[in-house]
């Protein structure tokens, strides 16, 4: 899922300062599961903003709604009337949802309430960890399911580096060394010979270095 963190309240207040009628829109998919921008978090932020408005005499009128997905047009379009009534829209979705709502209703400014951080998983209650960098050329077959791009701090394809320290990374001692994990996994599977294979330098054109990416399936198009 896509994971994000709510922005600091001061930043949100500053963004909303010039407006009066504010529509707060949550997203019911990834950002809801990571407890950042779903229905409940929209309710919390809306309540906070109403109180701030009262305490700081800001005269804000906050309305709130949450849709299933902000990254799909058919879920956004029914918000037309609510968008029209608002001076500004603040989205609690990931960067995709924020942009797509602004694309569907270009006459409206859509502000971000969330910093989108990574593609990750919920490893335990209340903790999410990064797992994928969306680099466009997956090598998980060569590393037995542990991504060296997203999980090695240096993104090394042939590791570990000299900074591995008893399974931890020199960049941050709280981080597992991805190549230590890869080594152990290869060992468990009796495939340590895989380490002899040098993964050659790759093209990063499939990642953002080749510009924004798109995917086309002609058979699905009208």
């Amino acid at each position: 899922m896509i994971v994000g963190d709510r922005k600091p309240i001061e930043e949100i207040k500053e963004m909303l300062a010039p407006y009066k009628k504010i529509l707060l829109v949550g997203c019911g998919t990834c950002i809801s599961v990571c407890m950042t921008g779903g229905e409940k978090e929209v309710g919390i932020l809306a309540s906070e903003l109403r109180m701030i408005s009262e305490l700081e005499k800001k005269d804000w009128e906050i309305s709130e709604t949450t849709i299933q997905r902000q990254c799909e047009r058919e879920y956004i379009e029914p918000l037309k009337e609510q968008f029209e009534k608002a001076d500004v829209v603040m989205s609690m979705a990931c960067g995709v949802g924020i942009q797509y709502m602004a694309e569907v209703f270009p006459e409206k400014i859509v502000l971000p309430a969330v910093n989108t951080t990574f593609y990750g998983t919920n490893v335990k209650e209340g903790e999410w960890q990064e797992r994928c960098a969306g680099c466009g050329d997956c090598v998980l077959d060569k590393t037995l399911g542990i991504c060296p791009v997203a999980r090695c701090s240096k993104g090394l394809y042939n590791g570990p580096c000299g900074g591995t320290d008893n399974g931890k990374c020199e960049v941050n001692k709280d981080l597992d060394c991805a190549w230590y994990l890869i080594y152990n996994r290869m060992k468990e599977h009796g495939k340590l010979d895989m380490l002899d294979e040098i993964i050659p330098a790759r093209s990063w054109k499939t990642s953002l270095h080749g510009g924004p990416r798109k995917r086309v399936r002609e058979d699905a198009q009208k």
């Binding site: 409940k40 309710g43 919390i44 309540s47 906070e48 109403r50 109180m51």
Partner: peptide, 11 residues
């Protein structure tokens, strides 16, 4: 108890 119960009470 939910954070929202608490906030609503203060609100």
């Amino acid at each position: 108890i939910d954070v929202l119960h608490v906030l609503k009470a203060f609100e």
